[in-house]
Amino acid sequence: MPLTHLLALAVLQGLTEFLPISSSAHLILLPRLLDWPDQGLAFDVAVHLGTLSAVVIYFRGELWRMGRDWLASLAGRGTTSEARLAWAVLLATVPVGLAGLLFKGWIEHALRTPLVIAAATLGFGLLLGLSDWAGRRQRDEYTLGWRGVLAVGLAQALALIPGTSRSGVTMTAGLALGLTREAAARFSFLLSIPVIVLAGGLEVRDLATAGVAVDWATLWLGALVSGASALACIHIFLRLIARLSMWPFVFYRLVLGLALLVIYSS
Results as ranks from 00 to 15, higher is better:
244 L>S: 06
236 I>R: 10
249 F>E: 01
249 F>M: 04
235 H>M: 11
239 R>H: 13
231 L>A: 01
241 I>S: 02
226 S>K: 07
254 L>F: 09
248 P>Q: 10
243 R>H: 14
236 I>W: 15
229 S>I: 05
248 P>T: 00
241 I>T: 09
252 Y>D: 04
243 R>M: 00
244 L>V: 12
237 F>Q: 08
234 I>K: 10
231 L>Y: 15
248 P>C: 06
238 L>I: 08
255 V>A: 15
247 W>V: 00
256 L>Y: 02
255 V>T: 13
247 W>M: 13
256 L>T: 08
233 C>L: 10
229 S>L: 01
251 F>T: 12
229 S>V: 02
255 V>I: 15
239 R>P: 02
232 A>D: 09
233 C>H: 03
245 S>M: 00
236 I>Q: 06
236 I>C: 09
238 L>C: 07
235 H>I: 05
229 S>F: 09
236 I>F: 15
226 S>F: 08
251 F>M: 14
241 I>V: 14
252 Y>A: 05
249 F>L: 08
232 A>W: 05
242 A>G: 12
227 G>A: 13
252 Y>N: 06
227 G>Y: 00
244 L>F: 14
230 A>W: 08
252 Y>K: 07
227 G>Q: 01
252 Y>S: 05
253 R>G: 06
254 L>A: 11
228 A>E: 00
236 I>A: 15
241 I>C: 10
246 M>Q: 09
242 A>F: 00
254 L>V: 11
231 L>I: 08
227 G>F: 01
235 H>F: 13
232 A>S: 10
234 I>M: 13
244 L>A: 13
239 R>Q: 14
233 C>W: 03
243 R>Q: 12
233 C>S: 14
237 F>V: 09
242 A>M: 07
241 I>M: 12
243 R>S: 11
230 A>S: 14
248 P>K: 02
253 R>M: 06
236 I>D: 04
249 F>N: 05
229 S>G: 07
230 A>T: 08
233 C>A: 15
228 A>M: 12
251 F>N: 05
243 R>G: 14
251 F>L: 15
230 A>Q: 03
